[in-house]
């Protein structure tokens, strides 16, 4: 059977707090598959380092507990920052040590109490430092956490879309600390790498993405990695619902439908 080997997950009651992506969602009375895919793994193995090998090596070391240096990685959207930070958490946890991943895009759900006593953990990851830029209270909270972590020699891994120099963080005390230890620029994936990454993601989900389909897709939609992965999600859903393999004509049909939806909005 076409879908054999693909694990169908049970619906869950946890809400993710993230907006659901409806573009290209199948319409009508078809049963919707699950909201998000549990098969996706954010570990070092599923990240293809390519030209970012330096940064990845240092992150791996940090995850293994070597050195107490902080690391600041920056690069444009879709370069894999969140993936890498979560991979670090995964690796730390494998050795039985506690760590935390702080998605600063969600600080509206947090209070500053969220930062307290984190120096007791083995490692702290702060994703999207840009989100707190200009928010005085949060900048101060991050600065205090930074100092406590430094005192306790707990490594802090930060990510940002901007270089330490270009950061919009206003508190000079915090800003000057960003580039103190190690900074790496994550280079965006080139096309070959994006294709490889898409194929690998599809593989972990248990379906095949043919060269023809990837090439068809990459020529027609915005090519930032986030968008490509979102498309992978959509194609996956459509394929599950229609119980059809992803072929070029099928993908063409899906793209055309979604364009129609977009134009009627």
């Amino acid at each position: 059977m076409l879908l054999s080997g693909r694990s169908q997950q049970l619906p869950l009651t946890f809400s993710d707090g993230q907006g659901e992506d409806n573009l290209g969602q199948p319409s009508g009375s078809q049963q919707l598959p699950l909201a998000f895919n549990r098969c996706d793994v954010y570990d070092f193995e599923s990240y293809i380092p390519g030209i970012n090998k330096n940064a990845v090596d240092y992150l791996l070391n940090a995850a293994k507990g070597y050195g107490d240096k902080n690391i600041y990685i920056w690069g444009e959207e879709g370069a894999g920052k969140s993936h890498l930070l979560q991979a670090v958490c995964n690796s730390v946890a494998e050795t039985g040590r506690p760590c935390v991943y702080l998605p600063l895009t969600q600080i509206s759900d947090f209070t500053r109490e969220m930062f307290s006593s984190l120096e007791e953990l083995s490692l702290v990851c702060m994703d999207d430092m840009d989100e707190i830029a200009g928010k005085e209270d949060w900048e101060t909270a991050a600065f205090n956490l930074f100092n406590r972590l430094k005192d306790a020699q707990t490594p802090l891994i930060m990510s940002s879309r901007r270089s330490p120099n270009g950061s919009l963080i206003r508190l000079p005390d915090l800003k000057s600390r960003l580039s103190w230890d190690l900074t790496f620029r994550l280079q965006p994936m080139d096309e070959a790498l994006k294709i490889a990454a898409l194929k690998r993601r599809a593989e972990t989900r248990g379906f095949e993405l043919t060269d023809g389909v990837v090439e068809y897709l990459i020529k027609r939609v915005s090519r930032d990695a986030h968008n490509l992965f979102r498309w992978l999600d959509r194609l996956d859903k459509h394929s599950l619902i229609a119980q059809k393999k992803l072929t070029v004509p099928f993908v063409k049909q899906i793209l055309e439908e979604s364009e129609k939806i977009m134009s009627t909005r």
């Binding site: 993710d16 793994v41 969140s82 995964n90 506690p98 935390v100 991943y101 998605p103 984190l118």
Partner: peptide
């Protein structure tokens, strides 16, 4: 297996 990787890393990993 049940939570999104992000939820798991944010809320479950820091527990001892």
């Amino acid at each position: 297996g049940e939570l999104s990787p992000q939820q798991f890393n944010t809320w479950i990993r820091p527990l001892q």
